[in-house]
Each structure stands twice: as C-alpha cells, then as structure tokens.
Design a binder for these strands. Structure first.
Lengths: 144, 144
DNA sequence: GTTAGTCATGGTACTTAGTATCATTAATAT
DNA sequence: ATATTAATGATACTAAGTACCATGACTAAC
C-alpha cells in the first residue's frame, strides 16, 4: 500500500477537452464532488443542489463515470456511493459500520492479478477489489 | 486457482435447521437455483415460476443471501446476478460481453489479503474480488 | 388426524436509483 | 450578435426491491 500524493485531474478541463460544455450545473456538481472527495451518494448531491434537476445529476455522474473521473461502489446495502478516482488504478475500503469509503493502492495485488490471469479461462481485462473493514473511528466508538 | 469438486449444502435442510419452514414456493425457488447454479437474475426466476409472487422471490433470495447460500453480484450494467455459493470462500469472474458469471478460488489472494490487512487502517473483516474477462466463447465469436 | 398458532404467501402499493422524452434555455462557433 | 446545437429541468417512466395486510399453508402438540 502506498500513500503518495493524490493527483487529481482538473475535472472541468477534462470535460471540455472531450467536447462537453462547461455549464453552471456541471460546474456546481463538480465543485461538490471535489469538496466531498469520496463516499457521496447521488441523492446527497441533489440535496445540496436543489436548483439542479435530478436527471442532470445522474447524467453528470454517468459522464464522469465513463470518463473514469469518479467510480461507483455498490455496497452490500444502501445506495451506491461515488468517489473521485485517483488518476492511478486503485481499490476501495468500505467501513461496514459507518459506510465510509477509502482508497488504497497495492502493487502486490496488481502483480498477483497478472499471475492469476494465466490460470483464469478467458482474457482478464480488469478487476475490482473491495475490502470490508471496521474503520478506526468505528472500532473506537464500540469499545467506549 | 483450484478446480476441486464443488461441495454444495442441502439448501432446504439449511433453511429448516434455522427454523424456516419448508414451503412449496421455497422448494421450487431453490430447485431452480440448483438447476441454474450461477449467473441468474431475480426476474429470470420469476419468469420460470409465474405462480410464485414476486415478493416471495425477493424474500427468499434475501434469506439465502443472509445465510450465505447464494451471493449477489452487481455488474457494471444490467440487473444484479445471483449465484449459488460454494461452501468455501471464493471469487467471481464476469464476462463483460455475455455477462456469464464464473467462480474461482485462489489461496494466493487470501494470503495476500492477510498481509495487506496490516497496511490498511482499521480491521479488515472481508473482501470481494471480481475479475472482468471476455470468456473463451465470446473471444471466439469475435474473431469469426 | 385435528386443531391452534404462527409463519409464509401473493397481491398490491410504495420506494428508490436511474433513464427517456421533450419543450425551453444556455454555451459555443462564427 | 446570432445561429446552431448541446444541455437543462420537469415530468413520466422503468426496474429492483420492500412494506403492508388479509388469506392460506406448515408445524407442533395433542
């Protein structure tokens, strides 16, 4: 696991580079994403931007997903959560108590996946790894 | 990756051992699950059992999920798919073309996860790994 | 085997994440 | 400044799943 500086792209610039327009709604959604960083739901964003239509929120999230700027995480229960992606490939931790989402990188996993792909029938083109944890905060609260 | 014989529990027995009743609906649902094995959707089961109420299908799937008899797999798109679990811990491959779901085991992964948990903040209590592949059948069809 | 109690069922209405449609509005290119 | 076209918000819809509730089916105890 590494802890190097997280490099994030200028999201609006990425959108514009792909020919998408820089609109008020998109800017305010992106602004909130950058503020929250990780573990936010679509509904949450909608609540903070009542002037922006629900459809637009989902449309924008979908766009950003396709561009790889954010990722969606399906939790065992509750609505899916979105997180800003690192530029680099990464994986997620989810606290099963509070639902907080974290990110980590581990070169060992990637090396292992390459090895594994020899033993899997078919061509491995991607993978997704989620670690379910109880985060430090939640285990502390439990012992109090 | 291992290929040993898949050991499956007697699902109805497991249900009854937990105090749940052996009803017609449950038996017919379980029967279909055992027939399909993996990669089926809730809707699919409902279609094959028009006499069983939709609610009952979801109720039963939920029960089986809680008991660990089946697992739910959220695909990048399309409805979630359910699979009979092996008794043993395992992971899934999903073909991104046809959506077929496979299972595999890899002790290396489990060992790696244990190592990794030292580097992750909080207590790791579980993990989920999905490999996205194009299965042999689909890559063949593409080259034809 | 009958019965009593309770669990499970099917039907229906609801919730929630996300999408389709469409007339109006705003961003861009010229 | 204007024409073009993309994006928007509103609304209605779909689809996975759940809540509710009166009726029916299991099981246990007799």
């Amino acid at each position: 696991m590494t802890n190097e500086q997280v490099v994030r792209p200028n999201i609006m610039a990425v959108l514009e580079d792909r020919g998408y327009r820089s609109t008020n709604s998109r800017r305010s959604i992106v602004h909130i994403l950058e503020d929250k960083g990780s573990g936010f739901t679509a509904e949450e964003i909608g609540r903070e931007l009542p002037s922006v239509g629900r459809a637009t929120i989902f449309r924008t999230l979908k766009l950003l997903l396709e561009m790889g700027v954010i990722c969606r995480l399906n939790l065992p229960d509750g609505p899916p959560k979105y997180s800003l992606s690192r530029v680099e490939h990464h994986h997620h931790t989810v606290c099963v108590v509070c639902g907080n989402v974290g990110e980590f990188r581990a070169a060992t996993i990637e090396r292992l996946m390459r090895t594994l792909s020899n033993e899997i029938p078919g061509d491995v083109i991607g993978h997704r790894i989620e670690l379910y944890i109880t985060c430090d905060l939640c285990s502390k609260e439990n012992t109090n």
